[in-house]
Amino acid sequence: MSAPHAGPKAKSIYDFTVTDIDGKKVSLKKFKGHVMLVVNVASKCGLTPQYKGLQALYEEKKKQGVVLLGFPANNFNGQEPGTEAEIKQFCTANYGVTFPMFSKISVKGDDQADLYKWLIAQSDRPTDDIEWNFAKFVIGKDGKVFKRLTPRDTPDSEAVRKAIDEALAAK
């Protein structure tokens, strides 16, 4: 019997292939050498306005090698009920999102995506489920989890900015 969040035996995030919001397979090797901010997002959540801050952070930091990856998830009170097309339209029309968005996944429970099993297992809280929408993982340039942040850590918070800047500075 394995630990609750043992997750896949991936060595880094680059071992995962996911489906983007348009239905295309994307190897996360595409982002090798970047600092990534992986966020589970939702369109009908009290935290949904974080999309604005996430887009601003992406625009500010992308030239430094930071990429945001949005993963819609409907795990919390049905707050992401839409189809991929509806989610994409909502994010573009309301928040001008240009960072990579992916197809809807499950971030907790029996159908939890392997990527999220791995993210949690590699974090400093390997037995804690994702708390809510807009939980964040900073991934270092080496493809490993650098820092796990909570949904309440907004994109403009000191915690998020410090983690990204530290990951950018790391060798």
Rank of each mutant, 00 (worst) to 15 (best):
M1H: 14
S2K: 13
P4R: 03
A6N: 11
P8C: 14
K9I: 07
K9L: 14
S12T: 15
S12R: 04
I13C: 08
Y14W: 11
Y14N: 09
Y14P: 03
F16T: 11
F16G: 11
T17L: 09
V18Y: 04
D22C: 05
G23T: 12
G23K: 00
K24Y: 13
K25L: 13
K25P: 13
V26H: 07
L28N: 07
K29T: 12
K30W: 08
F31R: 04
K32G: 01
G33E: 05
H34Q: 14
V35Y: 06
V35C: 06
L37A: 10
V39L: 07
A42C: 10
G46D: 04
T48N: 07
Q50S: 03
Q50I: 00
A56S: 13
A56L: 12
A56R: 10
L57C: 05
L57D: 02
Y58E: 10
E59N: 13
K61P: 01
G65H: 01
V66W: 04
F71Q: 06
A73S: 15
N74H: 03
N74K: 07
N74I: 05
N75C: 12
G78E: 04
P81M: 00
G82K: 08
G82W: 06
G82P: 02
A85N: 10
E86I: 06
E86Q: 12
E86S: 07
K88N: 06
Q89K: 15
F90C: 08
C91N: 01
T92K: 14
T92G: 12
A93M: 14
N94S: 12
Y95A: 00
Y95E: 00
V97Q: 08
V97S: 07
M101A: 02
M101I: 05
F102M: 01
F102K: 00
S103E: 14
Q112V: 15
Q112F: 01
L115R: 10
L115M: 08
Y116C: 00
K117N: 12
L119E: 06
A121S: 15
A121L: 02
A121K: 08
D124V: 14
P126L: 08
T127V: 14
T127N: 13
D128C: 13
E131P: 01
G140Q: 01
K141Y: 11
D142V: 10
G143D: 09
G143V: 00
G143S: 10
K144P: 11
F146P: 04
R148M: 10
L149V: 07
L149F: 11
P155Y: 08
P155G: 05
D156Y: 09
V160C: 10
V160M: 10
A163Q: 08
I164F: 03
D165F: 01
D165E: 15
A169H: 02
K171R: 14
K171N: 15
